[in-house]
């Protein structure tokens, strides 16, 4: 049923900012369609009134005390960054 075409794959790939080679797109489209066909088995399951399960133990969030525990570690954290200047991470100019 869920047949994805080339433009679907391109749209999803852009949302994910994921480069996909032009010649591989048909294969991804087929792969994805097959996976979606497989997961469509779930459609036939009656889940009326079932609470979605996010955590296997249905645990709740613990709260952290508001204490500063981290100190400046910039040198270590930026040691292998692709491009850094004056402590800033550099990217191609962003137009707003």
């Amino acid at each position: 049923m869920s047949k994805l075409d080339k433009s679907d794959v391109e749209k999803i790939a852009f949302l994910a900012r994921l480069g996909v080679d032009e010649q591989d797109i048909p294969e991804y489209a087929t792969n994805l369609s097959n996976i979606l066909d497989m997961v469509e088995q779930l459609d036939s399951v009656d889940t009326q009134g079932v609470r979605p399960m996010a955590h296997p133990l249905d645990a709740v969030q613990r709260l952290r005390a508001d204490v500063v525990t981290e100190s400046n570690d910039r040198e270590n954290l930026q040691a292998h960054a692709p491009e850094v200047e004056q402590g800033l991470y550099l990217v191609p100019r962003v137009v707003e």
């Binding site: 200047e85 004056q86 402590g87 800033l88 991470y89 550099l90 990217v91 191609p92 100019r93 962003v94 707003e96």
Partner: peptide
């Protein structure tokens, strides 16, 4: 994002 200091680049301060 800091756009001023760098030629054709944007600096990111987190």
């Amino acid at each position: 994002s800091l756009h001023e200091s760098f030629h054709n680049q944007t600096g990111i301060d987190l």
